[in-house]
Design a protein around this nucleic acid. Structure first.
Lengths: 341, 341
DNA sequence: TACATAATTGAAAGCGCTTTGGATGCCACT
DNA sequence: AGTGGCATCCAAAGCGCTTTCAATTATGTA
């Protein structure tokens, strides 16, 4: 069933039916109701591809999903997507997801943009000096970046959390508790948030004249396995750190297993603060020793970005171009005063 | 840059350029190369919406993502998506994801199908007597179901794992170890896999004249929190079960925390077998007590379903309509002989 | 040389929708 | 009666592509 058939069935022109459906004023109310009634009976739905071709809009936001054989799927991605979806469903928007090899993200993003399949773009997994920014700017299509790109002029629309502030505050807390030997379990080095978190730690330490040794820093995929490995490494250092900063509760999961296996007590022998993306899977308060965390909901960020993106496409009011969310520092049991030795 | 402009630039007709791009034989090789060269220089990409309108195909597979405020995102969904993506990227396919309230899945699926935006559908989260099946059959669009629908005639294309067999085998193993008091931590009751797994357990127990009490069964979202709660409940039962079957390693995570908190030893005081979807986040071998599991890779299932879907759209050879994958039973340390009391 | 055949190319229709630029009829008002 | 304004409606163009059908040129054959 298409517009033509529907209009013939009603004895009207396609024009009128189209107008009736899209809420234009110049159509008689009785006619409009007849049309609506017929739609209900026939189950007619406009063809989105045709609509898009005619209008240039189709109610969709595009994103690139990094994937490859051997490429680990990322819980954070799924959680963020849930947030985007939660908002999108309210506006009858959908997503076009282009899977792409992580090495091919720039090209994939361009393909997606000029495919004419999407109205707006969402970009994540930002890196330092991210090459996608220049491309996006040249595109004349709305987009919002999740995160920022360290080293690039911040003149693009983004939503980010204050990663540096979060880890600065967390480090300060541990310093106040008397800790002096720190370690940082971070995400992959090239990612923007990892850079900023590291800076946060370093600058808090610097205020006390402390530094973060190279051996006390790990950059790795944020899986529990990597958490285990990194922590095992830290624990066998001659000057074993007593304070651990951790970029994800997923890493913390493995880290804590290593702590337990070493017969150490979390919150006493060793203190740990993790960043909590509020993954439903891993609640810091339900760890066996509840985790002290810096918290910011990834899902909430997804909702907000979807709002901005959809709002821009629908031309509904202006939106702030740049948002920086503060994180909360929530103290639980995994942090305690430095152990006396 | 569109076809018209490109063809004018080349001094050719749109027809010829289109043919050159789509690999038709009736175009001079020199011309083809000129066209390809121009494409490279101009960065021209065909508009997908127009292509879809003209051909009816656009290289996309559609799926519905259940989401709502308060609806927990599901790690399993993300992992599966990674599998789909891994295959899709090889064929330059993309996804159209329609977010929908979980109560609105049938309607959302229909909207997606007749939107003209997708070539094929993927359907998951199957329930017993799933109402989507009838709709799909009436649709004349290729689709593959992940899982099955208990109680419906299995005459639709699906890929499923042998849930019943997996839990039957797991239960048998525990029976052989001498266990007689069982409990099952399952996924939501209405979901097909939960029904079948329960049946597997029950039929293995029945062979020994045993039954599964109502109180020894939990149906809940597969989060670690629910795992904790369910296990706490089991542990305070007057006749405490010694053998636990668990529908997911995520549930197991919480369950094991409860076991530890109760001061019990996994694999000695209490045996546990979990189903392992091979989530990169949770490796059963790296639990503090490595987990005995029934294993089947969710991601591999995603890859395979994408193969079938894309293959069907591209009319590349026939594919089996129904596939039932066996699971592996992998014995690790979380199972042991029934404790002597 | 003449003609059939193959190799290339192009004009134009069509996919299903939106939207511009009229039509048409009706009423009020001078 | 004549004019303008308003409320409705429609024909047709256009979005960017594919594909049918036809035209043109090159090649081979008798």
């Amino acid at each position: 069933m298409n517009l033509k058939q529907l209009s013939e069935l009603l004895g009207l022109s396609q024009t009128t039916v189209s107008r009736a459906l899209n809420g234009y004023p110049e159509v008689n109310e009785t006619t409009r109701e007849r049309v609506l009634q017929a739609v209900k009976e026939t189950g007619y739905r406009p063809n989105k591809a045709a609509q898009r071709l005619a209008t240039g809009k189709a109610g969709s936001i595009g994103l690139v999903m990094p994937t490859a054989p051997g490429h680990q799927s990322d819980v954070h991605f799924g959680e963020f997507l849930a947030g985007l979806g939660e908002e999108a469903v309210r506006h009858d928007f959908h997503f076009v997801i282009m899977p792409a090899d992580p090495d091919d993200e720039v090209a994939a993003l361009r393909r997606l943009a000029i495919s004419g399949n999407v109205d707006a773009l969402f970009v994540a997994y930002m890196r330092g000096h991210d090459p996608r920014l220049a491309m996006l700017k040249s595109l004349s299509m709305p987009y919002v970046v999740h995160g920022r790109s360290f080293g690039s002029e911040p003149d693009y629309p983004y939503l980010d959390i204050d990663n540096e502030g979060a880890f600065y505050d967390a480090t300060r807390l541990l310093l106040q508790l008397g800790h002096t030997r720190f370690a940082l379990m971070n995400g992959p080095m090239h990612l923007d948030f990892a850079i900023r978190r590291k800076n946060g730690v370093i600058s808090a330490l610097a205020e006390r004249g402390l530094t973060l040794e190279e051996g006390c820093m790990s950059h790795a995929l944020m899986t529990d396995e990597q958490g285990l490995l990194a922590m095992e490494h830290f624990l066998q250092l001659p000057e074993r750190p007593t304070a651990i900063l951790c970029s994800s509760t997923v890493l913390a999961l493995g880290a804590i297993r290593a702590v337990n296996q070493a017969g150490l007590r979390l919150g006493e022998d060793i203190s740990l603060i993790a960043h909590d993306d509020v993954l439903p899977l891993l609640k810091p308060e339900s760890f066996s020793v509840p985790l002290t965390t810096t918290r910011s909901s990834l899902r909430a960020a997804g909702v907000r970005i979807a709002q901005r993106l959809i709002g821009t496409v629908k031309q509904a009011g202006p939106f702030p171009d740049q948002e920086l969310w503060k994180t909360e520092l929530i103290v639980r049991a995994s942090t305690g005063p430095v152990p006396q030795t």
